[in-house]
């Protein structure tokens, strides 16, 4: 049976360095898969290949069974979100969120209604006329989510989206993303190098190691695997206690 999103035998090298080795991934609709991995393990490369921003050396990406090989990034319906919110600096909050709708020539009245609803949903109703540099890190990341969610993408590719936030903002953003993931029935890949965040955000969890992805059947299997680092973490905290 074909899954909603599949990556089959993906290979990618940069020069002599092999980043992804025949990597496979299967993602069901409305599922959020956390991918845990160290820096340089190939997480970002994987997301960029799925988004069409990097070309793989080999392998295939299927979305709803359709080969994405020749589909450009703007037609994949997969939004890639960076660690930095990357708001367009010349547009205010409203126009940033409305960006995708304007590309799709949605009528002005609908744009106003949908953007306002989205800003309300993201607890940003008062910020619509502000410029990106007038917002806090957390607010900027919310706007980036709003800009992505408003076009209702098939898949969200989240590349350590909370990596640049302080601990408190990070925790509140994790809660917010959990809520909107449920409200919008999001299908997403959530890449992180933080163990706790991977456990918290994913319906399932995968571990990226040496260019390969290992996806666990359940959280217990993830916790029990010594490679994930959970056992070492637990031992550390027990040691302190």
């Amino acid at each position: 049976m074909s899954m909603f999103l599949e990556a089959i035998d993906i290979r990618k090298s940069f020069g002599t360095e092999k980043v992804l080795h025949n990597m496979n991934l299967r993602l069901a609709e409305h599922e959020m898969l956390s991918i845990l991995g160290r820096s340089g393990s190939g997480k970002t490369t994987l997301l960029k290949i799925l988004a069409g921003l990097e070309l793989p050396d080999g392998g295939r990406v299927l979305l709803e069974g359709k080969d994405m090989g020749r589909v450009p990034p703007n037609r994949r319906d997969m939004v890639y979100l960076y660690q930095e919110p990357l708001l367009f600096p010349h547009l205010n909050v409203f126009e940033n969120v409305a960006f995708g709708l304007r590309l799709r020539r949605v009528p002005e009245q609908d744009i106003r209604k949908r953007v306002q609803e989205m800003l309300d949903n993201l607890e940003l109703p008062e910020q619509s006329r502000k410029m990106p540099q007038q917002l806090s890190g957390g607010q900027r990341q919310r706007v980036a989510f709003g800009r992505a969610l408003i076009i209702n993408p098939k898949v969200l590719l989240l590349d350590e989206p909370f990596g640049a936030l302080d601990a408190e903002t990070r925790a509140s953003m994790q809660q917010l993303l959990k809520r909107i993931a449920e409200d919008f029935s999001i299908t997403a890949l959530f890449v992180t190098h933080a163990l706790k965040e991977a456990l918290l955000m994913g319906d399932r969890i995968g571990l990226m190691q040496e260019g390969k992805l290992k996806v666990y059947d359940n959280k217990k299997a993830f916790i029990d695997d010594a490679d994930t680092g959970v056992q070492a973490e637990l031992a550390f905290w027990r040691g302190i206690g």
Binding site: G52, N74, R76, Y80
Partner: peptide, 13 residues
């Protein structure tokens, strides 16, 4: 470059 890539995945040519 990153801004433009962001725009591509949001649907921009």
């Amino acid at each position: 470059r990153a801004l433009m890539q962001q725009a591509y995945t949001l649907g921009a040519t």
